[in-house]
Nucleic acid binder design. Structure first.
Lengths: 267, 267
DNA sequence: AATGGACGTTGCAAAATATGCAACGACTTC
DNA sequence: GAAGTCGTTGCATATTTTGCAACGTCCATT
């Protein structure tokens, strides 16, 4: 919609790959050096981009700070955290909280396992959307046409022999998840890691987030992990209850809202 | 430098505070609604901004992903991590890794304490720059004029009675740190938390990152923590050695570099 | 020492682009 | 049913961005 901003923003993913100098940026943007320079300068002024001592550019500190701040302002996260911590205290395994947003599912909170063998993951990192328990829960709740459209758009990498192979299988799995109200990932991403997850529901019963417990085979068998299911579901329900129960907070910025709008930063 | 991009980027910190609707954005940007709309649309197309079901905007998934990816591309981090994990295995306390960038010091890695009482911090979050051990280490190595300039620009919040009170005291402390090659924070940020840190040096001996061990009083006394100093310094030196020792990797993008440029994403 | 080549930077004129306006449509509330 | 928000669109104006060409600088080579 806005060419200048569009070009400027196109620089970011490019720099995310690694530092680049002016000419590299210009050529990949297909603009004149001077144009790229001016865009980079603007990004620099905002701290989005940092100029290294060797003159090359890379993504800057403010980007982290922004992502950080935004994440901390998510309501679900705030409400859920103590519940997640409590569940972790009880079972000791890794707990994840995730939300869906335009073809991506990402972790917005994590409580680390107390066992030495841990699962690799990072807050802010997009999850393996075709296999993760939390992803299934979030996608299962999309309106039918969109669910189908998303499933078609996705790639289906074969992480392991038990990964979801294609869109058809995925949609079938989503139907099952939708039916039963919980989901698993049994070695679909990492051969030795299993997860059990449950949905967190908002105002009209829509799934606004999902949580899961993950543990490697070497710590507990899949069956043992599944025995945690009731507990996981209870936790998810407790979070849901608190989430919908919360009073509607007026925006601090002071604008009145004629429509009943919730602070609820859904995902 | 570029008005349009400048305006678009100004939206980000605004949305980081929490979701906002079109009019709020427009008024805070001091532009016409239609202008704000077009900027937001462009940001949306890039996934930087997300439009909630209630039509309000907030920061989007791609921003998190970008911050994530950028972080993982930092060389120091990659090299340092195993060393940090090892130190944590030995002493059990929280380990931080931080870099400096234009008036900010931020954590780029963290290994959690194995003790139940933990310190609050988050990767990506700017640290209390006037008191943190890692901040002192990083600032102490700046060239004299800039060090002075930065010290003057900073605020000196009195987190505790032992916080650095002003620029003069800070510069004196930096001189000491520079001299001795290590730094501490004894209750300067949180009354009950102490830290010991050491610098990680790059090619020409410049400090490119800093690491520290933190622990609350209730777990170990300040003296006990200080007894870890030799070990901390050895770890920092091991990281430095590996960091400078690494061969220079050619850029995958393929541009030839006439100047000897290192991949080294310093901070 | 001098030359050649890369790369970043600047002023300028041309033109493409973004801007504000006003009007419209959807929706709520009184 | 009227009044009021709020988001959206087409359009003409002019501000803003763009590409160009030339310059300066640094480094490597001869």
């Amino acid at each position: 919609m806005s060419q200048t901003v569009d070009r400027a923003l196109s620089i970011l993913p490019l720099l995310a790959e690694g530092p680049a100098n002016l000419e590299q940026v210009a050529s990949r943007l297909q603009v004149h050096k001077s144009t790229a320079l001016r865009l980079l300068r603007t990004l620099h002024e905002h701290g989005i981009v940092y100029r290294q001592p060797d003159q090359r550019y890379r993504l800057g500190a403010r980007l982290f700070a922004l992502a950080q701040e935004a994440m901390e302002n998510l309501d679900v996260r705030e409400i859920a955290h103590p519940h997640l911590a409590e569940l972790n205290a009880a079972c000791g395994h890794t707990i994840h909280l995730a939300v869906y947003e335009e073809d991506e599912v990402l972790y917005i909170d994590k409580v680390e396992s107390r066992y030495p063998v841990r699962m690799y993951s990072r807050i802010g990192k997009p999850v393996a959307i075709t296999v993760a328990a939390v992803a299934k829960l979030l996608l299962a709740d999309l309106p039918e046409p969109e669910r189908r459209a998303v499933a078609d758009r996705l790639d289906y990498p074969r992480y392991t022999s038990r990964s979801t192979p294609d869109a058809a299988a995925f949609l079938a799995e989503l139907a099952r998840v939708r039916e039963q109200g919980w989901a698993t990932d049994l070695g679909g991403h990492e051969e030795s890691i299993n997860c059990v997850g449950a949905p967190i529901r908002g105002a009209e019963g829509r799934v606004v987030a999902a949580m899961s417990v993950s543990a490697p085979n070497v710590v507990v068998s899949a069956d043992e992990l599944l025995s945690l299911l009731p507990r996981v579901r209870r936790t998810a329900e407790a979070i849901s209850a608190e989430y919908v129960g919360q009073p509607i907070l007026p925006q601090p910025t002071g604008g009145r809202h004629p429509h009943p709008r919730h602070k609820r930063a859904a995902p």
